[in-house]
Design a protein around this nucleic acid. Structure first.
Lengths: 128, 128
DNA sequence: ACTTGACTTAGAGTGTACTCCAAATGGTAT
DNA sequence: ATACCATTTGGAGTACACTCTAAGTCAAGT
């Protein structure tokens, strides 16, 4: 697959795909003889993984390290697992922050609902 | 309260507190005659709110707009509620992305656990 | 052969959210 | 009075993650 096809398929700009490869967020993508990227299934797998992680706010630096470890082979299996577990913990912490924020938002929205209700009642009383 | 006290109490740098006020993320803080900030309960309330929202990734721009609406008085009650509801929706969407990422991380970690187990078994077999 | 359009690279530019700095001022301790 | 330390402002600098630009290359169509 060309970069344009991958870009469309996964809704990621070609610039971002090149950037991800350049910084090592995904392993090098296979090329044609003339140097044009020819994404295969493995490349696409990395892209899907990284899109998912980035959408969730996982830092690029940690992901780069994961890819680097992966490329170093089986000796890094436990380091990779440790990295994933750390990212999971951070993710859980961020989700807890978001839940706290969500609760506050819900409380506030409810207050506004009651406030608006009171304002409506005032208007009705006036017109009666 | 001075800016140093507020900074310590809420674990936000004095620079950030000034920055938040400058851009309108919190309403103007009361001052002493000599122009030094003297945070009161209301100021602290805004700080707590904004710390919570920012930790959860709510965009500064939306929060600035909320404060601006708030300062315009009761005529903006429904606009404020609409803004909060939009932010809640965005928050829920991001939490869903994070849950997807969390699921993938958990799957991968489990794979590594099984992989490591297999590696251990291989080692044991060799040494037997 | 020549145009066209997608692709390549290196490097510069952008947006968001801080974070730091310099110069000036104010209140407090000696 | 003088030293000292926190505070003030405006503006510059930083970190992260893209995003865009310029200049060049390549394969396909006419």
């Amino acid at each position: 697959m060309t970069i344009a096809e991958v870009s469309q398929k996964y809704d990621i700009s070609a610039d971002t795909l090149r950037y991800y490869e350049r910084i090592g967020l995904i392993p090098p993508v296979p090329r044609t003889k003339s140097g044009i990227r020819d994404y295969n299934e493995e490349s696409c797998g990395w892209i899907v993984l990284m899109k998912c992680m980035r959408k969730a706010g996982v830092q690029i630096e940690a992901l780069i390290e994961y890819v680097a470890l992966f490329q170093q082979g089986d000796s890094t299996l436990d380091a990779r697992k440790a990295l994933l577990m750390e990212q999971r913990d951070q993710l859980l912490a961020r989700m807890a922050d978001m839940q706290a924020s969500l609760n506050r938002l819900n409380d506030k929205i409810e207050q506004y609902e009651q406030g608006l209700l009171l304002a409506e009642q005032k208007l009705r009383r006036k017109s009666e």
